[in-house]
C-alpha cells in the first residue's frame, strides 16, 4: 500500500516553498534553487549528518540545525545564509583543514576537490586555528587505488556507498573524534581485503584526494559521480 504523501509549505530565505512531508530542508531548498553547501551529503546515499556544512537557522530554535537530516514541517521559517551561519560554516571548514594535511598544490585532487571548492565558495581565505600536522599513513597496497588519510575529512561517503550500493561493507570508521579513521575490513591493508570487489565506487564518491586512482599525478584525479543517482533509480524501479 502506498503511503499518501502530504504537501507542506514553509518559507526558506523569504521565499514561500512547498515539499513532501518526508523531504528534508536541503532537498526542498535545492528543488527551489536555494544553495546550501554540503560535504557529507551525496544524492543517492542515506543521510549522515556528520559534516555540519549544511546548517541553517529555523525560527524559534536557538541552535543551528543540519538541513540534510531535518524534515520540513508546515509553517517552518528557515534562513540558509546569515552572517552567523556563514561564520560557523567557515569555522567548521577551517577545522577540517587543520585536522589533516591538506597540501592542495601537491594533491591529486587539486582543482577538482569538494573541500577546496567549499573553501573557495565560502571565502575561507585563511585559517586561524593551529594546524595539527598529524602523521598519517598512505595505504598504497591496492593494485588500482590509494587511500591517503592525510586528505580524509571523515564524511563517510565511502563507507555508505560500499555498504548501501555495492553491498560489500569493506570500508568503515574506527575510533572516535579526532582519532577516527577510515579502515578496510578489520583494519587490514586495502590490498589484502577479501571483501573489496575493486569496484571503485568509494574512490569516485570521495569528495577529496583521500581515495584516488593509482598513477594519477597532481590535479589529475577527476571523480565521476553521475553513476550513483542513476544506479539508485534503476534499482528502485526493479
Amino acid at each position: 500500500m502506498k503511503k499518501v504523501s502530504q504537501i507542506q509549505t514553509l518559507v526558506i530565505d523569504g521565499k514561500e516553498v512547498g515539499g513532501r512531508h518526508d523531504e528534508t530542508i536541503l532537498q526542498v531548498a535545492r528543488e527551489n534553487d536555494i544553495f546550501i553547501p554540503t560535504l557529507c551529503h551525496l544524492d543517492g546515499l542515506t543521510e549522515y549528518g556528520g559534516c555540519r556544512m549544511c546548517i541553517v537557522e529555523i525560527k524559534g530554535m536557538p541552535r543551528l540545525t543540519p538541513s540534510c537530516t531535518t524534515l520540513i514541517r508546515e509553517g517552518m521559517v528557515v534562513t540558509t545564509n546569515s552572517e552567523r551561519i556563514m561564520e560557523y560554516r567557515r569555522g567548521i571548514l577551517a577545522l577540517l583543514f587543520t585536522e589533516r594535511n591538506h597540501i592542495c598544490s601537491a594533491c591529486v585532487s587539486n582543482g577538482h576537490c569538494e573541500l577546496q571548492g567549499l573553501a573557495l565558495k565560502l571565502g575561507l581565505t585563511h585559517v586561524e586555528f593551529p594546524y595539527i600536522f598529524p602523521k598519517m599513513p598512505v595505504d598504497a597496497t591496492h593494485d588500482r587505488f590509494i587511500a591517503d588519510h592525510n586528505r580524509c575529512v571523515l564524511c563517510s561517503r565511502c563507507v555508505r556507498v560500499c555498504h548501501e550500493v555495492e553491498g560489500a561493507h569493506t570500508k568503515d570508521i574506527m575510533g572516535r573524534g579526532i582519532t577516527a579513521r577510515i579502515i578496510t575490513d578489520l583494519m587490514q591493508d586495502w590490498g589484502e581485503s577479501k571483501t573489496c570487489t575493486g569496484c571503485g565506487k568509494c574512490v569516485h564518491v570521495c569528495p577529496t584526494g583521500a581515495l584516488t586512482e593509482k598513477g594519477k599525478s597532481v590535479a589529475e584525479m577527476e571523480k565521476r559521480r553521475q553513476f550513483l543517482p542513476y544506479l539508485k533509480l534503476m534499482r528502485e524501479r526493479s
Binding site: F97, N101, H102, I103, C104, S105, N110, G111, H112, Q116, G117, A119, L120, L124, T125, V127, Y131, F133
Partner: peptide, 11 residues
C-alpha cells in the same frame, strides 16, 4: 575548472 589554491601550510 581552474580554481585557486587555498590552503598551503607548507611555508
Amino acid at each position: 575548472m581552474a580554481r585557486e589554491l587555498i590552503i598551503e601550510p607548507v611555508t
